[in-house]
């Protein structure tokens, strides 16, 4: 195929002068985001991390809405499916055998090179924009105004199970003993409120998969894991727009 030779010196004016500096910057940013996504699989740039964290990107871009803003970073590549987190959770929070607050999912990738299996721990994502809280008719489930944990008033739960369906993360189940919906609350009543620094699952994990901490504290491990550009950070089901506070990294 042959192309006509271009005379660069005599090109027609294409209206570049009317494009403002701001517009050029925005355009470049889009380009960076796109390349970031392709390079890292999901997320590379800090800008897109931030967008995923906050309920309203403008309002919360500069500061985290809760103090402490509890969050968990899951280093997926370290998980070996020993299930000690699940045991610790069930023991600490009286979780019956027919339910769970946290579990480990298994993913097989037969044509992968090297390791062909990965384990994905999941739990309530304590979303900043929780679909379950909006759906509950009696405010039985609510987002704590101080620490942002999605909690339950068990006595108010009518058992309509709408929150179970509203949750994009399958984090809720009906607990017969409590006669209400039960869910992970980052061990707030059983550990955090009693002065413990970690959730039961994070404390029990032998491989250091679950990093728990305060996202609003710039000295915390979770803050440092999320506010970096080298390694990709992602959340589950970002398309739902629930703005989760549980993040994932490979290791």
């Amino acid at each position: 195929m042959k192309f006509k030779k271009m005379d660069i010196g005599n090109l027609k004016e294409d209206g570049r002068k009317t494009v403002s500096l701001m517009e050029r910057r925005e355009f470049l940013k889009i380009g960076l985001m796109i390349t970031g996504v392709f390079a890292g699989g999901t997320v590379l740039s800090l800008a897109s991390n931030m967008n995923k964290v906050f309920a309203s990107s403008e309002e919360f871009r500069k500061k985290y809405p809760y103090k402490p803003h509890y969050s968990m970073v899951i280093l997926e590549g370290r998980c070996i499916d020993c299930e000690r987190c699940m045991e610790a959770c069930a023991k600490t929070n009286d979780v019956p055998d027919y339910g769970y607050r946290t579990t480990i999912l298994e993913k097989d990738v037969p044509d992968a090179i090297g390791r062909k299996r990965e384990f994905i721990p999941v739990l309530c994502n304590q979303c900043n924009n929780p679909p379950c809280v909006r759906a509950c008719p009696t405010k039985a489930t609510y987002k704590d105004k101080q620490n942002g944990i999605v909690m339950m008033h068990y006595e108010k739960c009518i058992g309509c199970k709408t929150c179970v369906l509203a949750c994009p993360y399958n984090a809720r189940y009906f607990n017969e003993e409590k006669h209400a919906i039960d869910k992970c609350n980052f061990c707030f009543d059983t550990r955090l409120s009693k002065g413990e620094k970690l959730t039961a699952c994070a404390a029990a994990c032998p491989a250091g998969v679950r990093i728990f901490g305060d996202l609003s504290d710039s000295g915390s491990e979770v803050y440092n894991l999320i506010h970096q550009l080298e390694k990709p950070v992602w959340v589950n089901r970002p398309e739902v727009g629930a703005k989760p506070n549980v993040f994932y990294m490979k290791s």
């Binding site: 509950c136 009696t138 405010k139 108010k156 009518i158 309509c160 009906f174």
Partner: peptide
Amino acid sequence: ENPLRMALYNVISPNLTS
């Protein structure tokens, strides 16, 4: 599961976004 609670908390703890 708890229809009687519904009668009570629908009135005293309504969630208007639900």
